[in-house]
Design a protein around this nucleic acid. Structure first.
Lengths: 257, 257
DNA sequence: GTTTCATTGCGTCAACACGACACAATATAC
DNA sequence: GTATATTGTGTCGTGTTGACGCAATGAAAC
């Protein structure tokens, strides 16, 4: 199927396949070179970046739709994916904007067309291992790549707001659930894990206090110390104790009351 | 407008007024007699209880729709209302179920009718002052009343799941935001506040430790001690310091990292 | 009127968690 | 070897938390 055929089919048949007025958007976080990254894509002919998103098939659970979008972009499945908010403001659509976009593809639709209607979107955030992902475009997108969270460009519609809310939800999660298994390679050093936390929280942490607190969670296994080829003292390598990690995910970490 | 006219208009015109396939449901919490209550309603001719819900007008923000539903049922406005989850599973609709319900009203619709489609619903929970609420029915509902959270009857569709998730979100909120201003009368005693916390958490708390912790939040004002007509020693009365309360709502209470 | 007793206000104590910081061990660069 | 950056481990003071003691209060019982 060529690009134009694919777009044409979506335009014509979309309303028969998908739930109307509803979409899902994914904020896909990765971690690389000490930077928190987010996967963004640029639509064809549209000079603006946005979050990877998609529609929900009429007989498909919303969570599965998000999973599907995620898989299309990263090639991964069975990864950490969490719904964090539904965005239902009226400002979050722009009929002219979409119309202009479609016209660039030589497509003209009536103003009642389903793609031009107001959409509610359900936001999900995902944590993925950077090195395992190969960002991939599809027929509708021109580019798909990682962006440093601190350097994201202007985003379409309310996607900046969605991204901010996702980051806020991720920070909240640090307080009551373990983080890292989905963002780091299988073996990692304590400084790497700390850098991840510091990057997410956007503030420095004390090296020694961090180690003490993390180890007290009891979800890490210390391996033989390797990590060669590094300047200065060689740090230990750690891996997550999956059983304990999952248990901590289920039961939560600390908790006030 | 009679009941049947109202229903008829909804059946006929609803798809022109509302966003398709989308609804909002409200879990309205109240506190009375040491019990956490939730406001449920029973649809006409339907022998089952459910959460108060509604549809979203095509030009109406989802949050406003929830506020509207809340106001219709409680008469209150400007109250604490928080979105906590969107429910998008495919099991959450039952075409036959709805059809049977409509037939009891003498209404027959085609199977493509908008009301029979699969719906995604956005869940909100609200905290309201029990005494200020007068539960009210409307043309579509037969009954509307408070239920003890521990004695809720079987609920329609996935409403039990929604209720459970709301309660879980409320418990989470206790950990990082103050609670009580919306659930208690303006003046209250420390034991009353403690009972509220115990009821939400469904576990006993130490009287003295509770007082210490709550007072350290710095959001309470102690008044003259009154609370007459009570057996045994008369407890102090407290009220919330609204400025500090709002500040705590904004900034959060404690927080791990 | 005195006693009883559940309830409230206030305080104590040990255990633990947390932030700030010291010091020795180790591996690379020169 | 020496310098230097980084890591592993420990300490110390502070504040928070959980468990509990005790005196004060005021309606109810006698």
């Amino acid at each position: 199927m060529t690009k134009n055929e694919a777009i044409g089919a979506l335009i014509e048949e979309g309303q028969n396949w998908f739930l109307p007025s509803l979409s899902v958007d994914c904020v896909i976080f990765g971690f690389h070179d000490g930077e928190l990254k987010v996967l963004l894509l640029k639509h064809r002919h549209r000079n603006m970046w946005g979050l990877p998103g998609g529609f929900v098939y009429k007989d498909e659970p919303a969570d599965v739709a998000a999973q599907r979008v995620l898989q299309e972009r990263t090639g991964l499945h069975e990864i950490f994916l969490q719904q964090f908010h539904a965005f239902g403001d009226t400002e979050r659509y722009d009929k002219d904007f979409h119309n202009r976009d479609l016209k660039k593809d030589g497509i003209t639709v009536r103003s009642e067309h389903w793609l031009l209607q107001r959409f509610i979107t359900i936001g999900y955030y995902a944590l993925v291992e950077f090195s395992k992902v190969s960002p991939s475009e599809d027929t509708l997108t021109e580019k798909c790549m990682w962006w440093d969270i601190r350097k994201v460009p202007a985003l379409m519609l309310d996607h900046k707001k969605i991204l901010d809310k996702a980051l806020q939800a991720l920070r909240m999660q640090l307080n009551y659930q373990p983080i890292g298994y989905n963002l780091l390679p299988e073996k990692f050093t304590m400084p790497e894990l700390q850098k991840l936390y510091e990057t997410i929280l956007d503030k420095p942490l004390d090296r020694r206090n961090f180690q003490r607190k993390i180890l007290n969670y009891g979800i890490l296994c210390r391996l033989k110390e390797i990590k060669k080829g590094v300047a200065h003292k060689a740090p230990y390598l750690y891996s997550f104790d999956l059983n304990r990690y999952r248990e901590a995910l289920r039961a939560g970490l600390q908790g006030g009351w």
